[in-house]
């Protein structure tokens, strides 16, 4: 447990200090939203209609673009070998890396969401369902993504491969997440069911992704 906390604290420090990727992910998220709005045109009612799915897609892409960093630096400076060699439970270590990734990208994305929601003219009653769905769903994005990052850790240019691998696996999270946000905004009774399924997807990922990540990390050792 101490190792888990230590790894999370270390990764967070690295992510938020100079050269860390955390602020860039939020900036990327904002830029996607702006680019999309500019592509759609200045029709406010149309923008407000697609705001929630747009923010969900943006959060997904911003998570995806930062996955490569989870293990990259650790592998380059050799600390990944030390972590694998000395940890009693590599599965816990993999979970710690995913948690740290969520705290450094998922959480800032959620904090930035209300601002973007206002920018995209999202209705006021739609904001809480959107935030709730992001809070429940984005941990699954980090967990599944950390598995793909572990799989591709030995490759020099991994982000494209990671995106191809992670895309199909993200689909349930996107469907339940965007579905919950839409249902919550319109007062649809399926809101609760969508949120529960989203939570189930996150728990499922929490149970299996660290195991798969640990296996991938072991297979990638030289």
């Amino acid at each position: 447990m101490n190792a888990l906390k230590a790894i999370i604290a270390r990764d967070l420090r690295l992510a938020f200090r100079a050269g860390g990727g955390a602020p860039q992910a939020v900036a990327f998220f904002a830029i996607i939203a702006v680019l999309f709005a500019l592509a759609v045109g200045p029709d406010l009612s149309l923008i407000s209609k697609i705001a929630a799915p747009l923010i969900w897609t943006g959060a997904l892409l911003a998570t995806q673009i930062s996955l490569d960093q989870i293990y990259r630096a650790d592998r380059e400076d050799g600390s990944l070998d030390v972590i694998i060699g000395t940890s009693d439970e590599l599965i816990l270590t993999a979970a710690a890396k995913a948690i740290a990734h969520w705290l450094s990208t998922g959480l800032p994305l959620i904090i930035a969401t209300p601002v973007l929601a206002v920018l995209l003219n999202l209705e006021r009653e739609a904001i809480v369902p959107l935030l709730l769905s992001l809070a429940i769903g984005t941990p699954a994005l980090s967990l599944i993504g950390s598995f793909a990052a572990a799989l591709a850790v030995a490759l020099p240019r991994a982000s494209l491969l990671i995106s191809i691998i992670v895309g199909p696996l993200y689909i349930p999270v996107l469907i339940f997440g965007a579905g919950a946000a839409a249902a919550g905004a319109s007062g649809d009774p399926q809101y609760g069911a969508n949120l529960s399924l989203l939570g189930a997807a996150t728990l499922f990922a929490a149970a299996f992704a660290p195991i798969a990540s640990a296996a991938a990390l072991r297979s990638n050792q030289d």
Binding site: I171, I175, G179, A201
Partner: peptide, 12 residues
């Protein structure tokens, strides 16, 4: 994941 994806798409 195939059953999960299949279910989510049916749901969607």
């Amino acid at each position: 994941n195939i059953p999960v994806i299949k279910f989510s798409v049916d749901w969607w």
